[in-house]
Design a protein around this nucleic acid. Structure first.
Lengths: 255, 255
DNA sequence: CGATGAGTTGAAACGTCTCAATCTACGTGG
DNA sequence: CCACGTAGATTGAGACGTTTCAACTCATCG
């Protein structure tokens, strides 16, 4: 049946082009799948849904329908607190997934808000799971992606376990740096999409403390900061700070 | 073929009895599986491997082979620090799983050490994955369990995001309380398997601070503590403390 | 160009850490 | 069975780090 074949070919090519243009290609769920499986998976993705700064991707209690992949922009997840505050629990950069926590409860556990203009790909989970039950590589890939998330969460807890604000912020910056690098961005120079308040909430610090630490790191020549823009100038010293053995940049500078 | 049938029946019954005796039955990977699938899954589990206090279940860099389920006792996971210290990243109670973070890397990311005499069931992951690719309900269950872990990790980050030591310890105790309850233990009375130092490492606090907070909570009548033993006396006030609006028990007591 | 929100800075109050001493429970060997 | 050693837990006091509240600066946008 040549007609059908032709249609299929066109479809595949269109899809591939669409995803090739997305520089996250190898980073989301798609990586490591055979050509044919990939086409199947791509066919269920809703591509490039757009959110403005402050828009919610989802909120606590909403029924879980889709897993989201950040295409561009970034997203924070948080628990709303009584009194209007927010407890930030995560930041999601391009190429990272969102919503995996809701699969089990079938209801979203937290709010997700765009930190700037953000484009998102959505995978309807029921279709994804249906596909996984047929295509072995999709199932395998799903489990691996969730495992990666769990190991990332564990590393995040090591950041929070640091006793000093300095160590926590340094470890946080290193974590961002690594994640940017993994996504093909510069590991030494990037823009923080989130506010000082968000960083503080995430790290368990007051926003003023975050601000002061940035200026201290800057004075010590460890990073250069201007508002959202961050440039890591001395990776080694930043690592030392993250390991908790930095304490007082002036002393470290003096030799 | 009656002979074969008979053998199978005996096997199944033996397995079922073994798992019925394990009061975690419905809590580990086995929950929600059809009778037949359950039998298949049970057949690959190595049951009741025993560890003494201080023994390692696995260590960083070791090849990942099995997912562990804590049967009795408890386990801490941690990153070893240069200098001999430990950054504790998790505690695992009976019925909870261990090692999901290593699936993707195929190598363990952290150390796991028994906090007391601990019995563990082990599921060889390659066989589990093989089974998942054939039995749909196993695959489904695996994804749900990993999702639950991810949502648990997110909640843990909310604990760490609290700015005051008091809130972190209160939230930590509430978290333990909930987990004990889910496993059929008393939510108001339990023994802490981990040391104050471990709790401090996990929460980003000095061990002395943890100790002082316990005595303060005790003085305020929120909990009764004696070494490892903890009894929650005033759940509401503990919740208030966890929400950060407690601050100074004496003042709270005075009205 | 004024309004707004985010970020920075200062000073004082407060919380947490550090170091050191003491205490307790527990296991070991005499 | 007791004495002892040890590891974990508690307590105190002072140093230090972080928060709080407030004022101020800076960028952005209508």
């Amino acid at each position: 049946m040549p007609g059908r074949d032709a249609v299929q070919t066109v479809d595949l090519r269109a899809l591939k082009v669409a995803c090739k243009h997305c520089n996250l290609f190898q980073l989301c769920l798609l990586a490591g799948l055979a050509e044919a499986d990939l086409a199947l998976l791509e066919s269920i993705i809703e591509r490039g849904r757009l959110f403005r700064r402050g828009d919610h991707l989802f909120q606590v209690g909403e029924r879980f329908r889709v897993v989201c992949a950040v295409k561009s922009g970034s997203v924070k997840t948080y628990f709303p607190l009584d009194g209007g505050g927010e407890q930030v629990v995560g930041f999601h950069l391009p190429g990272e997934l969102l919503g995996l926590d809701a699969i089990n409860a079938e209801t979203h556990q937290c709010n997700a808000k765009a930190l700037g203009t953000t484009s998102v790909c959505e995978l309807p989970f029921d279709r994804l799971e249906g596909l996984a039950s047929v295509v072995k590589s999709v199932q395998r890939q799903m489990v691996r992606i969730m495992s990666k998330q769990i190991s990332y969460d564990q590393a995040a807890r090591a950041i929070h376990g640091k006793r000093h604000a300095e160590g926590r912020l340094a470890a946080f910056l290193l974590n961002l740096s690594t994640r940017f690098e993994q996504r093909g961005f510069s590991p030494l120079e990037f823009n923080l999409a989130m506010s000082r308040l968000d960083i503080g909430s995430y790290l368990g610090l007051a926003e003023e403390t975050v601000s002061r630490l940035f200026t201290r790191f800057q004075k010590d020549g460890v990073v250069a900061v201007q508002r959202k823009y961050v440039c890591i100038r001395d990776l080694d010293r930043l690592r030392v700070a993250a390991n908790g053995s930095y304490m007082n940049g002036a002393a470290a500078r003096s030799d």
